[in-house]
Computed example of a mutant assay.
Amino acid sequence: MLTSNGYVLDESDSRLAELEPVPPTERADRDALWSRLRRDGYLYLKGQLNPDQLLDFRTFYFASLGEANVYQTGTDPREGIAAPGEVDRAALRRGLFDRIVPGPEYQALCTAQGIAGWFAWFLEDDVHLHRRKIIRHTKPGEGGIGTATQAHYDLVYLREGSDRVLSMWIPLGDCPRERGGLAYLEGSHHWVMAEEREGTLKKPAASITADLPGLAEERDARWLVTDYEVGDVVVHSAHIVHAALDNVDRGGTMRLSTDIRYQRLSEPIDWRWQEHWNDDDGL
Rank of each mutant, 00 (worst) to 15 (best):
R30G: 02
I100K: 00
A243L: 11
R78Q: 15
F62Q: 04
Q72M: 11
P21D: 06
Q107Y: 15
D56Y: 04
I240L: 10
L123Y: 05
D220V: 11
W271A: 13
E20N: 05
I135T: 14
Q113T: 14
M193Y: 01
D40S: 12
V225L: 06
K202P: 09
I170C: 01
T59N: 12
Y7W: 12
D31Q: 14
G199T: 06
E229C: 08
G231A: 04
E86D: 13
P102Q: 05
R177T: 10
A210M: 00
I145N: 07
P23T: 09
D40K: 09
A148E: 01
Y71D: 00
R38I: 08
R261E: 00
K139P: 08
D246N: 03
L129T: 04
Y61S: 04
H128T: 09
T73R: 14
A120P: 00
D29H: 13
W271T: 11
M1E: 12
E229T: 10
S12T: 15
I145G: 07
Y184V: 15
D31T: 13
A151L: 11
N5H: 01
R250V: 13
A120G: 05
S162D: 06
P21I: 06
R159M: 10
M254G: 07
F122I: 04
P268N: 01
V235Y: 02
P84L: 14
D163K: 09
R264Q: 05
E26C: 09
H152D: 02
W191N: 03
L33D: 09
Y61T: 07
V192S: 03
P84V: 10
I240V: 14
I100P: 06
L158C: 09
L9V: 05
S162H: 02
P102G: 08
G47K: 08
V165W: 01
L54D: 03
G6E: 01
E26H: 11
R36A: 08
G47F: 02
E218I: 03
T147M: 10
R219E: 11
E195T: 07
H137Q: 10
G143A: 14
D280G: 02
E105H: 14
D227G: 03
G85T: 08
M254N: 09
L182K: 06
Y71C: 03
I260R: 05
L16Y: 11
E124R: 13
L155I: 02
M168N: 04
R89V: 13
R177D: 15
E178G: 14
W277E: 14
V22H: 00
D13G: 13
I100Y: 01
E142A: 13
I145P: 01
L16H: 10
D52I: 12
D76F: 05
P176T: 05
P77I: 06
E26S: 12
H189Q: 15
K139V: 10
E18L: 15
D52K: 14
D29M: 08
G80R: 04
P268C: 00
G251I: 00
E160N: 15
M168W: 05
L283M: 11
G181A: 09
G85C: 06
G80D: 04
L19W: 07
I260S: 10
R179V: 12
F57C: 00
Y71I: 08
G231C: 01
S12N: 14
A90K: 13
E218T: 12
E218P: 00
A194G: 07
P213S: 08
N50L: 07
A151T: 11
V234T: 15
E67P: 02
H137E: 10
D10M: 04
Y42W: 11
G144E: 08
Y184S: 06
D126V: 01
S207P: 14
D13V: 12
G41T: 02
R58M: 09
